[in-house]
Design a protein around this nucleic acid. Sequence first.
DNA 1: AGGTATTCACATGAAACTATTCTCTGAGTTAGG
DNA 2: TAACTCAGAGAATAGTTTCATGTGAATACCTGT
Length: 399
Amino acid sequence: MSVKIDKIFDSFNNNTIFKNKLALQTNYTPETIPHRDQQIEQMAKILSPSLRLERPSNLFLYGKTGTGKTLSTRYVANKLAERAGKENKRLSILFVNCKLKKVADTEYRVLAELLRQLGQDVPATGLPTDQLYNKFIKSIDNSEQMTILVFDEIDEAIEKMGSGFLYRFIRLNDSDLTKSKMSIIGIANNLNFLDKVDIRVRSSLSEEELVFPPYDAAQLQDILNERAKEAFKAKVEDGVIAKCSAFAAKGHGDARRALDLLRIAGELAERDFKKKLTFEYIDKANDKIERDKTLDFVSTCPEQHKIVLQAIITLSETKEEFFTNDVYELYEKLCMKLNEKPRTQRMIGEYIREFETYGLINFKVISRGRYGRTAEIKLSIYPHLIVRIREIMKESLGL
DNA sequence: AGGTATTCACATGAAACTATTCTCTGAGTTAGG
DNA sequence: TAACTCAGAGAATAGTTTCATGTGAATACCTGT
């Protein structure tokens, strides 16, 4: 047995089709960023005053996921920092991803993360938030310097905690900082969130704006080609790349998805000891991504979610479509059986929405006139996955 | 017939509540000088 | 007397519940022909 396993390891070592897999990872910063010259140039122009320690305008970037916002920003930031280092200017650029759970998804944690990046240790809880503000001010205002804060996924942040924290940051600049200066770059996926933002914040955040349009299929191909050259040992055929980008372009031109697809296809091919990436692996990869996403959600979600999902699956066996109340009634019964205290209907509605964002169900609010308004729910999981989900349920709930 | 008002059964939003985790502070306790 | 311990107060946070308000169209109810 162990001989066989050794063999597997050996051939895995020799056979790998990757030269540098990192090039397909999402956090990789390539040398060149195709089709974003204009945005990068603009950004550089807007931010260049910081090299003279003058405050550049606040900047607001928006575009769908996988359109190169973060990548371009990092790119420019690196160049800027490099230059500042050469010229001996005190310029620091701090990145915060406001979406990262447990890291920077509340006002307190954003501050804590910033302070950590400045080299200070902050407790995870227990301190009042304004104490963190004071610490923050103290640590950037101790010398004449320029600080650029980049809030990535800022729309998520505002969704959760309102725009108050941004206002406070913007105000810091006018009122609390004496020696140093600060400007803010906000990166957002959807533009609608601006409605929820206080007008003062809005106008001062978007002193300058840049739009990142989605990539079209041809542009995606360029990007993938570039990365594939770096990542794979053998040349990847045009057809394969084209298929990959076609898949991604069908969505909204998400380069991240396209890269994921290529990477996972590569991994699958590698597992089969192939030396070259071929067509069929793209399809397999697409399946796998879909599959992993749902199975991962199902096996890691909390028990209450599972019970609701169980109810939905059971209902979908007899009916194609059903309504919120059907789910809730069955859910209550299941809770009874499991000796769990049922949550309120309000909460179940919330869970159901969550299922929708993970693509487990279709969910549509409809009005049945005299018979009220409700949501029509339809399961949308591949049948072959349902079997697997059933098993997971049985294991964890015993149903 | 055509138009208006009602009404249903939830959706959606906001606020309040609960439980847990963490820090800080100061009173009480301990051990060594 | 300095060092240590430990309980209580105050914060942040996640996950609810409670309360309030909104909503779209099938029906009920008019109204005047």
